[in-house]
Write a protein that binds this DNA or RNA. Structure first.
Lengths: 146, 146
DNA sequence: ATATATCGTTAGCTAAGCTAATGGAAGAGA
DNA sequence: TCTCTTCCATTAGCTTAGCTAACGATATAT
């Protein structure tokens, strides 16, 4: 008897993993228009959506060490996309937030990424759209647990 | 009237994008045990599953330039994970394939990634598993078109 | 036979990954 | 109040990865 079963957790996990890799690899192609490379775009994204945020938390969120994030943030600041504010409460830390320019650049980059995917989703049968919608809640639950 | 609709393509696209990012970021944590960094692991993965493959095609698949892939492949070869074979047909090209050691390292790394995800999927309700299973086919179709 | 195109490599640049060490600041304990 | 420990981000210094341009060897077209 085959172990290939529709709801075998290992098979689902492997296929989800593969699909996510290919999806992001494709979507990343649209980033060339942003003028930022992947690590910078990713950091800016977290600052825009989760800011203000400390450098340590940002490094945690991006799974890199603080020295690495220091350089990335310095580059974003030099481009006028991010600003640093010292904390009045704890002067060891800095609070990072996006400038208006930074928000604009990030949202434009995100729009480019999302747009081609959205245009493909738009032509799917309604049942497929519903399936995708249901999947998102499941995936969000999985990611939170991991 | 709200534009937030369950099957609005933009919303689905944005949420899928975000979920994929978070999923892979989480899974990438398991890679530390492999002894390889992300670019090398990724290249090895393509060689194991799509090999033998030329350096140019591998660079295309990974969305980097040939000089970048040359260095990554040289490092993998130095570690005994990959071997290069000159082509008898076209002596400009080389064929890359994984060694037994390379396959072992990659499959072990992949097992680590998949395992934690599979253990979470295993405890989902059967309906959620079916939803995920249905989603994979849809996602594979989307990725192919992009 | 010659010119053009292709494949992968090398050179040289910038950026990103790391650890260790550092300086400044905050907190805990005596 | 002083001292020690811990915390936060930066700097230094290393390796690796990203790029383009140029190159040499090879294949293809004329």
């Amino acid at each position: 008897m085959s172990t290939e079963r529709p709801t075998n957790p290992e098979d689902i996990a492997a296929s989800l993993h593969s699909a996510a890799i290919h999806l992001l690899r494709q979507l990343r192609q649209a980033d060339a228009g942003s003028g930022l490379n992947s690590p910078r775009l990713s950091a800016l994204s977290v600052i825009v959506f989760a800011g203000p945020i400390t450098l340590g938390h940002l490094a945690d969120a991006e799974r890199v060490r603080p020295p690495t994030m220091t350089r990335i943030v310095n580059a974003l600041e030099a481009k006028g996309l991010v600003k640093k504010c010292a904390s009045a409460i704890d002067r060891r830390t800095i609070h990072l937030s996006a400038t208006m320019k930074g928000k604009r650049v990030l949202l434009e980059a995100r729009r480019r990424r999302i747009q081609s995917l959205a245009s493909q989703i738009a032509i799917l049968p309604p049942q497929d759209k519903k399936t995708l919608h249901a999947t998102i809640a499941i995936l969000n639950g999985l990611v939170r647990v991991l």
